[in-house]
């Protein structure tokens, strides 16, 4: 699904939410927007609703909700919160931000 474009690797991301809370909905929206603008074509997002599958919480060491985990590229990175601060999310994901693109 993911495609490699030049210098960049592909991203495998997993977002953990718990039901349809405002924070979860905001996080999903924020993540999709941000990936489209910065990682278009080289990302994959899984959304895990812990309400549906609570055993995942222990397996993946989830404490805070929402939690975004960058599974690839290694190493694993965790970002918690509703992902409203785009700049910090990108830093957290380790995405190289080209000057000027943040302004968009």
């Amino acid at each position: 699904m993911s495609t490699v474009q030049g210098y960049s690797e592909s991203y495998t991301l997993r977002l953990y939410v718990a039901g349809q809370t405002p924070k979860s909905i905001a996080a999903i929206a924020n993540l999709k927007r941000l990936c489209e603008s910065h990682l278009a074509g080289r990302y994959r997002i899984d959304i895990v609703d812990l309400m549906q599958d609570p055993s995942q919480a222990q397996r993946d060491q989830i404490v805070a909700i929402p939690t975004l985990i960058r599974r690839l590229p290694e190493p694993i990175k965790r970002i918690i919160g509703d992902l409203s601060n785009t700049e910090r999310v990108l830093v957290g994901l380790g995405v190289d931000v080209l000057p000027g693109r943040i302004a968009q």
């Binding site: 812990l50 929402p66 939690t67 970002i79 918690i80 509703d82 999310v89 957290g92």
Partner: peptide, 11 residues
């Protein structure tokens, strides 16, 4: 862990 915005400990 990177904290970005509102969260809770529902996990």
């Amino acid at each position: 862990i990177e904290e970005t915005g509102e969260y809770d400990l529902e996990g």
